[in-house]
Design a protein around this nucleic acid. Structure first.
Length: 158
DNA sequence: GCCAACGTTGGC
DNA sequence: GCCAACGTTGGC
């Protein structure tokens, strides 16, 4: 019996790495690096699995919101940027024997014709308790319920 | 660019 | 182990 599919929202600043970059990546896949928050790291390590659905969210952009859909294709492995002294994600306190930071690999599924904006998410009563619509929700890897996932995809069609 | 909200650090 | 200071995130 396969594990149950889960859903997530991954935040990214599109001028660093956006849905278009994922679509243009080799094999339309990319390693999700740079997560440097323990709560997000723990989700990647313990909860995020192959086959899970990902809402690709653009933060600090215009428009802000969910820009497309991706899926997890490889479970968490050590994030190589933590060992790279030239990377802005370098963490001198992490060792190869006991890596502190992890990342998963995701694959492009589709870009929405129009971004489902944060203001539209906030206006949808079904999404009143969705994490991303809450004030001050900074977590970069957020759990999404199946109901929220369906509601967001329905908005993308509309 | 501002700044509120949040996470982390470090003195005690 | 508390909590003030500091650094970062991210909507506006």
């Amino acid at each position: 019996m396969a594990r149950k599919k889960r859903y997530w929202l991954f935040k990214s600043e599109p001028y660093v790495f956006g849905i278009a970059d994922l679509a243009a990546a080799p094999g339309r896949r990319a390693f999700w690096d740079g997560v440097r928050n323990y709560q997000a790291r723990n989700l990647l390590r313990d909860e995020v699995g192959v086959g899970d659905g990902v809402l690709f969210y653009h933060s600090r952009s215009d428009p802000i919101g969910v820009a497309g859909e991706a899926k997890v294709v490889k479970a968490a492995t050590p994030d190589p940027t933590q060992f790279d002294a030239g990377s802005k994600y370098h963490d001198p306190g992490s060792s190869r024997d006991d890596p502190r930071w992890l990342g998963v690999e995701i694959e492009f599924v589709r870009a929405f014709d129009q971004v489902v904006t944060l203001s539209a998410l906030k206006a949808n009563r079904k999404l009143a308790s969705m994490m991303v619509t809450q004030r001050g929700a900074r977590l970069s890897i957020q759990p999404v319920t199946p109901e929220e996932w369906r509601a967001v995809l329905a908005m993308a069609k509309g």
